[in-house]
Design a protein around this nucleic acid. Sequence first.
DNA 1: CGCCGAAAGTGGCATATGCCACTAAGTTGG
DNA 2: CCAACTTAGTGGCATATGCCACTTTCGGCG
Lengths: 154, 154
Amino acid sequence: MTEAHKPGFSDCNNATLRRAARSLGRFYDDALAPSGLKSTQFGLLFQIHISDEPAMGTIAEALIMDLSALGHTLKPLIRDGYVQTFPDKDDRRVKRVRLTPRGQAKLDEALKLWSVAQRQFEKKVGAEQAAKLRAALDAVADLDLEMPTVAHSL
Amino acid sequence: MTEAHKPGFSDCNNATLRRAARSLGRFYDDALAPSGLKSTQFGLLFQIHISDEPAMGTIAEALIMDLSALGHTLKPLIRDGYVQTFPDKDDRRVKRVRLTPRGQAKLDEALKLWSVAQRQFEKKVGAEQAAKLRAALDAVADLDLEMPTVAHSL
DNA sequence: CGCCGAAAGTGGCATATGCCACTAAGTTGG
DNA sequence: CCAACTTAGTGGCATATGCCACTTTCGGCG
């Protein structure tokens, strides 16, 4: 096996992932800056766009993010008039989300900026490689990881 | 499963990366929870540990994070007595960082928890695959991405 | 030596994210 | 029908990160 057993932190999958996320996030943020959107906001707007007036829980699940975190992240977008929420007709607990016309326009604007960054990235790493990487990341994200914590089976 | 993904533009490399980071981050956070450290804090402590009383700028560079962000992230760790800072002897602008004995102990404690999560992860995706993924992520993080920004003279 | 621009941090402000406790609203079993 | 449980969000609190505007030091340079 030729390698050490001692924990080399440089081998931490999570730390490596976060580091890459900071780096790439910065790049996409810069690209989107002219639109005034952060890459996270752009992603959120897009997710709403491709869904059909999704419930908050649905969005949170798709993005694998905490429901309350989504609620917080949504606030600036609501404040700026890009999205609006409305109660589900059948279940009053459910709050659905949709883009406003202004949000749609902003998304369209951001998409142009995004595609430049996206192309730039794929030019660097290769479209094929990028696709593989995304597939790997999706696989990781969808892993059903559980801590072998003994006392947690209830 | 239950993917709310539609083909096409939802192939944003950045969004995919963040999504995976949220997912994996939670897993490692859960694993480290008994120590009271977040995975980010653990990573930071470790980085300090493997460096030799690094300057803040050095740490920020290694982790590809904003210097001011590092400063903020460091605060809870200082407050809790895990790390301490001290001025560089030759350059009074430079602030160096080191673990306190207590920080070292906490890191040791966290390392045990971390290794469980790490092993769990690698068991799921395979050590080989994990290594490849980390390599790919490091490559992405170290890419010299530049926006083909149109105008401007520096 | 004294002014100037670069380098390293700090603080403030804003968004990103999570967890927890709590409320409101469906669901279900008796 | 009502109590108990479950589901969907909210609000508060804390950390994670970034950018920008300073402030303090350093390193030149005339």
